[in-house]
Design a protein around this nucleic acid. Structure first.
Length: 892
RNA sequence: GCUGCGGUGGUGGAAUGGUAGACACAAGGGCCUUAAGAGCCCUCGUCCGUAAAGGACGUGAGAGUUCGACUCUCUCCCGCAGCACCA
């Protein structure tokens, strides 16, 4: 834009974010202003502060205003911490492996590696236009071989410790696309999100990480960290620790025992049946051709009966999610013909198969106590099994249980239970557990909802799992053989880890990266990559073709930032064993734990739990310094479209941050996103309100130029300034960004109303507290006022900015966070509320020195006609007086 | 069903036991302007009262604790999120 000289000065009076924001962004970047300092050997004692945001997945859709919301807020937080003198680390990187990138690539016919680097470039440009104080020097990218070398290394450590293992697990299979699917690709109705075909479950050998081994610690250590209640509770539920007992029941007539897990052994005298899940091993052996019941039993298990069982089990196993939901909680089942015996009372318990019993929960077999468990009740009703009452609830009902609402699940007193009678259920539980254990009928166990983490994907765009399958090693058990064995199509293979010095196992560049129709990863088709010499015996071997899930790279990225520039310095030919974590111990122990980790609620039981697990493992192998990675976790609410719906292309309600920046500037966008509402709450976008924030900045700008040179700030305005400094500081600390902004708005309103305005010194103070929120405007105003100052004193005609060496010492962002003058906070004038029976009847204002003392106030209050009206003819029973605040007359 | 969070003007929200509705948006009116925009000023919970004064009611519903409750306790209703036939 070309301006005539004469207009320049007038032009500069107007707030024009376009003309200042980029200029400052460049200046800050040039100065490396936001680069965190690693602990200097023995020097600098600046306390560290690690602010972490969840690194973005660089999607093709570009930056979302939701990103902006949380990053701006955390940026304000980080900036304030910096101004308080902390050595702040606020890094960013890219979580770029995984399905979304692969799908985006398939859809747009761009290779994922190309798509990712394009998307990163545009994300970067967008992020940089927001003036966020990220330390770009530490950028990491999970798809960079230098990075995933260490993701693979971590996997090998798991393997070494036996915590990575293979098992047959059900996977989602799309019969139409002929590919395995991740859970997130299957819609809740059981169909494939891309093609809409009904998916199936198939068993497949997968890699698993033994997170359940860490369940207790993941649970226990939640007490040592500061997470929002909702997040901590969700993890507790997800881990789902339950103490109970596995009771063994002898099956009558054959040599077989059924184990049932229960948390309610106290009700065991009321047991009338056993139900096995369709996946239970007894069911399988019953149906297998090898099953050969004794002649005596054959009478009971007729082949017709077996057919019935077979049909039921087949049907149950093939039931889709939809069918189960459609059936609701209706119970079905089939009698096996077998009985087991309850050692407690010698009762015969018929054994059923029912699909409400899940194979993976407990022991996959349930002891049925229909009087005291609603599902058991429903099953008993459906199968016509007797119901026995063994607990009397608080309602004292001792009648026969015939209706679901009579089922006594909670608190009560034992009956019909021999030596337990009369006991409270909790006491009974203790007593019977000891009894059963001492008799050898069962053992106390802890069960978890959490299950081991399936760590394989049959997709292209992920970290290759760094192992090799070698048949020779397996058959010949070459030199101190220590490998796990994998049986593939009937043949044994040794699972040979790729030697650490050969990492990374690079993902080969593939033209055809679509999921293969064999159910294998597309990598399986690359024979010159797959076929490899066994690192152990040198013989012919095959690489693992599965890749890691998209969570793998995000498990440790917050550690990678700490030595981002040292990733992959080693030459690939080296034979030296490296351990980048060990080599960077000093840096890691300086920065860890993360002081505040900010991210979405949706990651609570996924990324957040997984990364805690991985970190604990790193701690156990001696490369991480503390038992928990994140000291504090906070989550942000979602930004919805203007229509109150989730932003989505199909609704056409997506707000593009670029457009807001273009129209109003980054500062307005940042302020609005912080002002829109409480940080952890879901809020709909409102463009009109964005304009309000723009108006606020325009006002600040205007006042900063014309009303910031008073000789002395008036007492009233000065006090307001002190209050605002205090409030803004506290609100940032409490992450109440919305009220911090409104406090500044209040102040600016007062500033505007004030005749004289602020003194230069006081105006600077205001720009300091504005700086974390509107970094560009605050910087520009701060520099202008500074130039003005210098100009007056030193007669330097400096048209621009005093950005001199050491440059950033002049920046508003390198000033000390202002302190408020507590003595000025005390209001000279106070308002005393006069209440009669708690209702406000009058209000006094006056000098604090005058309007004080209960006697004085009581006197004043009683003189008020408004108050008299309500006291007339009443006897005052009590007077409540709060100094400087209120007086309340309580009448009879 | 379980767990967690929430319910306050036309709207987003503020108020952590002491004047409910800060701040902002929307709406209405005015000033300025040839006009538009921008900016500035005023009104703005509901009802009664003539506009003022003044009054009554009011934070999902009901009860309780308290001199005093949006705030604490209990019961219920509704909404959101996560988990869910978890034995």
């Amino acid at each position: 834009m070309v301006k005539k000289t004469g207009e320049a000065s007038r032009g500069e009076q107007n707030y024009d974010p376009g003309s200042i924001e980029e200029k400052w962004q460049k200046a800050w970047e040039k100065e490396g202003f936001y680069q965190a300092k690693d602990p200097p050997a023995g020097g600098d004692k600046a306390e560290k502060f690690y602010v972490l945001i969840e690194f973005p997945y660089p999607s093709g859709a570009g930056l979302h205003v939701g990103h902006v919301r949380s990053w701006s807020a955390m940026d304000a937080y980080a900036r304030k911490k910096r101004m308080e003198g902390f050595n702040v680390l606020y890094p960013i990187g890219w979580d770029a492996f995984g399905l979304p990138a692969e799908n985006y690539a398939i859809k747009n016919k761009i290779h994922p590696s190309v798509a990712v680097s394009e998307n990163i470039a545009s994300f970067k440009r967008q992020i940089k236009s927001l003036g966020l104080s990220f330390d770009w020097n530490r950028e990491v990218n999970t798809t960079d071989p230098k990075y995933y070398k260490w993701t693979q290394w971590i996997f090998l450590q798991f393997l070494k410790k036996g915590l990575a293992y293979q098992a047959d697990v059900p996977v989602n299979w799309c019969p139409s696309c002929k590919t395995t699917l991740a859970d997130e690709e299957v819609l809740p109705n059981g169909t494939h999100e891309r093609c809409g075909a009904k998916t199936e479950k198939r068993m497949r050998k997968q890699w698993l990480l033994a997170i359940t081994k860490y369940a207790d610690r993941l649970l226990e250590d939640l007490k040592t960290v500061d997470y929002p209640e909702m997040v901590a509770q969700q993890q507790v539920n997800w881990i789902g620790r339950k103490e109970g007992i596995n009771i063994t029941y002898q099956v009558l007539g054959i040599k077989y025992q059924v184990e049932c897990f229960t948390t309610r052994p106290d009700t065991n005298f009321g047991a009338t049946f056993i139900v096995l899940g369709p996946e239970h091993p007894f069911v399988a052996s019953l149906l297998s051709s090898k099953f050969n019941p004794s002649t005596k039993l054959r009478a009971r298990v007729q082949s017709a009966k077996l057919e019935e069982i077979r049909t039921y089990v087949e049907k149950a196993k093939n039931k889709s999610e939809i069918e189960r939901i459609a059936e609701g909680r209706k119970k079905t089942g089939v009698f096996t013909g077998f009985y087991a015996v309850n050692d407690l009372n010698g009762k015969k318990l018929p054994i059923y198969i029912g699909d409400f019993v899940l194979g993976h929960v407990g022991t996959g077999a349930v002891i049925g106590v229909p009087g005291h468990d609603i599902r058991d009740f429903e099953f008993a009703k459906a199968m016509d099994i007797p119901i026995v009452r063994v607990v009397v609830g608080p309602d004292g009902d001792t009648s026969e249980i015939t209706k679901p609402e009579q089922v006594q699940e909670a608190a009560g007193t034992m009956v019909n239970s021999e030596f337990l009678d009369g006991l409270d259920i909790m006491a009974a539980k203790e007593k019977i557990m000891d009894h059963i254990v001492s008799k050898g009928w069962g053992e106390k166990v802890v069960s978890y909802h959490l299950r081991d983490w399936v760590f394989s994907r049959q997709h292209y765009w992920g970290e290759p799992i760094p192992v090799v399958y070698c048949a020779n090693c397996a058959t010949n058990k070459i030199s101190n053989f220590k490998f796990q064995i994998s049986n593939i199509k009937g043949k044994d293979y040794a699972i040979v880890p790729v030697p650490e010095e050969q990492l990374p196992v690079e993902l080969p560049y593939l033209e055809q990266y679509e999921p293969a129709t064999t159910g294998e990863s597309p990598l399986a088709t690359v024979s010159d990559w797959v076929n490899v010499a066994c690192p152990n015996c040198g013989g012919k071997a095959r690489r693992e073709t599965d890749t890691m899930p998209n969570w793998a790279g995000s498990n440790w990225y917050y550690l990678a930032y700490l030595f981002a520039n040292k990733l992959g310095v080693q030459s690939s030919k080296s034979t030296r064993e490296e351990n980048i974590f060990k080599e960077n111990q000093e840096v890691i122990s300086y920065w860890i734990p993360v002081d505040i980790y900010q991210g979405g609620f949706e990651h609570t039981t996924l990324h957040l739990l997984y990364s805690r697990f991985v970190y604990k493992f790193l701690f156990d192998i001696g490369v991480a310094p503390a038992p928990e990675p994140y000291a504090k976790r906070r989550s942000h609410g979602i930004v919805l479209g203007p229509d109150g719906r989730k932003m989505s292309k199909s609704f056409g309600n997506v707000i593009n941050p670029d457009e807001i920046v273009k129209k109003f500037g980054a500062d307005t966008l940042r302020i609005y996103e912080m002002f829109m509402g409480p940080f952890d709450q879901t809020i709909a976008w409102n463009e009109a309100s964005v304009e309000g924030c723009f108006r606020f900045l325009k006002r600040v700008w205007h006042l900063g130029i014309i009303k910031a040179s008073a000789e002395k700030t008036s007492a009233g305005l000065l006090q307001k300034l002190q209050k605002t400094i205090k409030k803004v500081g506290e609100d940032i600390e409490w992450m109440k960004f919305n009220t911090a902004v409104s406090a500044m708005m209040e102040f600016v309103n007062d500033w505007q109303d004030d005749k004289e305005g602020l003194s230069v010194q006081d105006a600077k103070q205001f720009f300091l507290i504005l700086a974390p929120f509107a970094p560009h405007a605050a910087e520009e105003l701060f520099q202008r006022i500074r130039n003005q100052e210098l100009g007056i004193k030193e007669k330097i005609r400096q048209p621009r900015l005093t950005w001199r060496q050491p440059a950033h010492h002049n920046s508003v962002h390198d000033q000390k966070w202002p302190e408020f003058d507590a003595s000025l906070l005390v209001e000279k004038e106070v308002t005393i509320v006069v209440q009669v029976n708690g209702k406000v009847r009058d209000v006094f204002r006056g000098q604090r020195s005058e309007v004080r003392g209960q006697k004085t106030i009581e006197q004043l209050a009683k003189e008020s006609a408004k108050v008299q009206k309500y006291l007339e003819g009443k006897k005052i029973k009590k007077v409540v007086y709060v100094e400087g605040k209120l007086i309340n007359f309580v009448t009879v």
